[in-house]
Design a protein around this nucleic acid. Structure first.
Lengths: 336, 336
DNA sequence: ACACTATATGAAATCGATTTCAAGATCAAT
DNA sequence: ATTGATCTTGAAATCGATTTCATATAGTGT
């Protein structure tokens, strides 16, 4: 309620001096104290709208993600939040549902809201950041790269992860390895497929050719239902696979559900998943999981963003975080 | 980049007229068209900071929750987001970790940021909303009530849900029913306990007395680890329970994990949980789950908030949503 | 003592919208 | 033709901070 003018009057100084006190500029000891007392008496909080307007910058960063219900992105959001908090910034979380229109709308809002920076897991590659860039705003892409716009990125090594996940299946004796990946237009989906392809080609038997048949590669939607449907589709093939590499966590859930329903849980069919399964305590059988450091992805992106906000200027950098394969074993009562 | 002044110049009108066009006030057909063309030529977007400053209100609502990694709250956030989007508002998601200090900080930000309204799942009852209220901001409490401050609330019937969950255990033949609930100072935790107590008292045998012993009621933290520890504690009792009512979803995960580890999964010990288990597809055995309509909780709260924002004024209302008991059965390969 | 720099302060301009106020234009009714 | 009501419009004030600019004061070196 109280404005800087009221504080100034009460402290017997000018508004400019009050502003200086709150922004760490040279003010005499004595007036500083008077201002602080007056401010605390009046419960003064600087109006952020006014500050954002005049300073052309607010202490807010926008985090734009495609799916807030995916634990991967909430973990990422925590990583961002941790760093933002330590910098005294707040985070606006925007959920796009993977819809480029909503994404564009949020970027528009970010622009007209004078946010200090944007961290975005882009849903496509068509998004235009030039307006924000022209305004001098910092942007960091996370999880999904933005090509050709000179934008910092923090990524996981999808290709290597996909290859490691597939190789784990090979090591367990799988011959006919299918792949369920995300939407065609999402680059992470393609990169994980490349990893799978590379591992499959190295199969020493001629099953490698079988795997590369179009039937064995399924594009789905990175969601539970998509993984479920895709798995049922694979099972219905005349020559069903004996293993499947699933390119994200939610589809992993769908796949395991489908397998459980038809009674062909691992190790009847071997499964490896790119990305941590939520609440993996309940996975009834042994599968391979490629651990993705989601929270670290977020904190790294936030750190890079704040470097930019604090003035670091140099051509765009790309940080690639390592995955971390590990096997989840059954702990449930079925004793496997 | 473009301001309202540049648009005005290009269209040959005053800035006031441009503003009127964008706010649906009477402007002649002809000038409206000129303004719209100029605005689109210049890619004009109104500066939200300026608008928030002058109008003392921004098209943003703040959603304050204790744990963004809890699927209950992300579902709730979606519900809020759905409604906000249809109203053309954006949502700032604030994660407090259940820390009242962070909560106060976010409320401060909400205040000084001129947000249109706040939806909050409060972490305690000590929070002070008077400053926001004085400023005429709308507030809706969700999931957790705010007492004595005349604030709208959207709640679930915790007592009835707790009672139904416990009664389900009784119906399955349980005699010695323990309860694991949330933090003492959280009202939902207490209410669910009351439901349990009420159901337990109705036990026709004298085991009812056993249940009400202090040993059988555990206060934990509403998180996975807390449920896990509490369950191990119960199992270590000289007279361990034959059933347990768990007061939230995440602790349900912890409890089932603990049970799986010691090999006493349901129906060795019967379990009922208040709140949907995330990715329940994998729950290896039959348990009772009290379904909580989290998304609907969010959308209802948002609707009530927008009614207030649009001018509805009347004493605070409280909406109580019904739970919905259902049993989750095993679909996993263990064949139970 | 003098010139010169560094520090402290306030008055006023500024950010970009909305909104009040007053005036001009239009139109209907008498 | 006159009055009055309604609709359009622009000039200027306003929201509450930051920032520029000019001035006053203190401090330093010779």
């Amino acid at each position: 309620m109280a404005t800087i003018y009221e504080v100034a009057t009460r402290a017997g100084v000018s508004p400019a001096t009050v502003s200086r006190v709150f922004n760490g500029v040279n003010v005499s000891q004595e007036k500083t104290e008077r201002v602080l007392r007056a401010a605390s008496d009046l419960e003064f909080t600087p109006n952020r709208a006014a500050r954002a307007l005049r300073a052309q910058r607010s202490e807010v960063i926008a985090l734009i993600i495609p799916d807030i219900e995916n634990p991967f992105f909430t973990a990422l959001a925590r990583g961002v939040g941790d760093i933002a908090e330590s910098e005294g910034y707040s985070v606006v979380l925007c959920n796009t549902d993977g819809d480029p229109r909503k994404e564009a709308k949020f970027l528009d809002i970010a622009y007209s809201d004078n946010v200090a920076g944007v961290i975005i897991a882009a849903s496509g590659d068509s998004t235009d950041f030039s307006a924000l860039v022209r305004k001098g705003r910092s942007i960091v892409a996370v999880d999904r790269e933005i090509i050709g716009q000179n934008i910092d990125a923090v990524l996981v090594n999808n290709r290597a992860g996909g290859e490691a996940a597939t190789r784990a299946l090979v090591d367990q004796g799988a011959n006919r390895i299918a792949c369920i990946t995300g939407p065609r237009h999402v680059e992470t989906a393609q990169q994980r497929v490349e990893g799978w392809q590379s591992a499959v080609k190295s199969l020493t038997n001629d099953f490698g050719d079988v795997c590369t048949s179009a039937d064995y590669l399924r594009y789905a939607d990175y969601r539970v239902a998509g993984g479920y449907e895709a798995m049922l589709g694979l099972l219905a093939l005349p020559d069903p696979p004996d293993a499947v590499f699933v390119a994200n966590n939610l589809m992993g859930v769908g796949v395991l559900t489908a397998l459980a329903e038809v009674g062909k849980t691992p190790p009847d069919i071997l499964v490896s998943v790119f990305g941590d399964l939520p609440f993996a305590e309940f996975i009834p059988t042994a599968i391979t999981v490629i651990h993705v450091p989601a929270r670290q992805l977020g904190s790294t992106a936030a750190k890079m963003l704040f470097e930019r906000i604090h003035g670091y200027s140099a051509p765009a950098r790309t940080a690639i975080l390592d995955h971390n394969p590990r096997t989840v074993r059954a702990i449930a009562a079925n004793g496997s």
